[in-house]
Design a protein around this nucleic acid. Sequence first.
DNA 1: ATGAAAGCGCTAACAG
DNA 2: CTGTTAGCGCTTTCAT
Lengths: 332, 332
Amino acid sequence: MKATIKDVAKKAGVSIATVSRVLNELPGYQPETKKKVLQAIADLGYKPDQSARALVGKSNKTIAVLIPKLSSLVATTILYGIEDAAHLIDHSVIICNTDNIGFRTMKYLDLLQSKRVDGLMIISEFVKTEYKKRIKELEIPVVLISTKDFEQEYIHIKIDDKKAAFDATQYLIDHNHREIGMIAGAESDLITGLPRIEGFKAALHKNNLPLKEHSIIQGDFSYHSGFSCLKTIIKNYPQLTAIFAASDEMAIGAMNAAQSIGIKVPEQLAIIGLDNTQLANMCFPPLTTVEQDFYQMGWDGLNMLMDLMSGKKLKSKIMPHKIIERASVKSI
Amino acid sequence: MKATIKDVAKKAGVSIATVSRVLNELPGYQPETKKKVLQAIADLGYKPDQSARALVGKSNKTIAVLIPKLSSLVATTILYGIEDAAHLIDHSVIICNTDNIGFRTMKYLDLLQSKRVDGLMIISEFVKTEYKKRIKELEIPVVLISTKDFEQEYIHIKIDDKKAAFDATQYLIDHNHREIGMIAGAESDLITGLPRIEGFKAALHKNNLPLKEHSIIQGDFSYHSGFSCLKTIIKNYPQLTAIFAASDEMAIGAMNAAQSIGIKVPEQLAIIGLDNTQLANMCFPPLTTVEQDFYQMGWDGLNMLMDLMSGKKLKSKIMPHKIIERASVKSI
DNA sequence: ATGAAAGCGCTAACAG
DNA sequence: CTGTTAGCGCTTTCAT
């Protein structure tokens, strides 16, 4: 049978109150007593029961993360960072794979109440008003990762999407490309879609390059949309020499599409992506891209959540990004 | 303030025992009473507290999964299946990313005791004796996914690795390839490495093809090992026309390595992989491979765990595999 | 510095 | 059919 606080108390010859004190590092006992208690704990292999702690209103050391798709490399890399940081401070993480559907998300939010989780992280997902209402009832701190809340109710941690897109485009321009296309996300996606388009436009403008009619095509961040978008954009804008894709997946889709129709990358077409997932190293040629440090975002995000939980006031955080040069872009 | 069972009882004008009964669908109340209680529950938005349930020795509807690497596509796809199935029956899943290190794993096992999880799943990881000892103390059911326990203490769900490798090789042979190489996992990996090598050898043997000295090279299932193994095997066994890689990642690494040195796939070299991760569709040419339905494994595995939890006796389960024909293999 | 006891929300006898 | 009550393991007054 599992040892309880009572067993420890008996073995150490003290009361359970005292055991609880040393457990929680509260003041009020002799060093001598502490030693006995610690000894008993070790002997018995005692582990405090988190459910019991939760019941008396204490933290049960678990946080939940809402994740839109459990098999996406970007989300799972963030999750990796969260989990690592959580593990370091003995917290568990419950995953809630929402599949980006509202009903499921709401059901999870209900579940989290039953579970008394201490905090919540939301990855790459738009936070709808109905979620907020529900979260408010939960009365737990929230941090957003790789997404944001326009109403500023929650803090977030993400890159500067516009700047990242700007830098990617500028990189192409610096390599003497003048006819540049963009395979973008949806313009209606205000969080990552639109800002990246704006960054692209801003870079062209800054360098006095005109924005051609067909230079931007909207995909959905997926490999397959990248693949098909390339064929379209090549048809509509045949003189282009370089492409900025708003995600690595789309970049690689575009790269493979190009090669499938005999266009050599980077010789005839330069491609730069955005994300720097593992994929960027698993294609040929290896993809030049702008890195978002997803792992770090997860890690930092979790620590922000902990700070929030301990009552600190925090501001949102913008992560740096940087260009990783590999082989898919070449000067002309 | 959150509603408790007391609030519900008061509102419905019954005792908490009765509320508990309808909550747990136990017999012993008039339909009439039930209706009132249900109404009160709905009005109050009451959600039973899982910590309190756990404390009285009931399930708290959470299971834990030990996962070796949170950013690997195969593991996260399994996790996806687990999570989906768990969600359907209102269970939560706690992730324990072990990074395949024993110390971390042991620490998790400790944590799980504090959390009173109801069950444990282990993905793609060898179950060391020290883990077993600890797990025994937890007194919870375990199911293994995509791995196995040679001592048969735990049931598992996985494919028949030897047969899958056999079929992949046979597929190559059926396409008239006679000089076939294999990029394998480590022979010392008794769970997936060795059986796949055996399957490869068995297929050659069955077809009266000799096993050449340099026809098998060992990688570590990663993209990069596939990339470098290809270069070596091509050098040592230049007459080969086809390769079976023991994982998609290695297959794609090999494919890209081949293309990087001017070898055309599938025209000059056929490649077949094993796994059918998303990657198989994100390379060029798309990879022919043998599918393991990881999602389904996770899903079925969770249901097996539930059966175990409800006292059923179960046997391990072998999942079917099948060849997915895409474009990386061509007859000669 | 330490112990006794109440109570967190729930389930499960035991009464009625 | 329904209510009362004793815990589950822990934290936290309140005494001592």
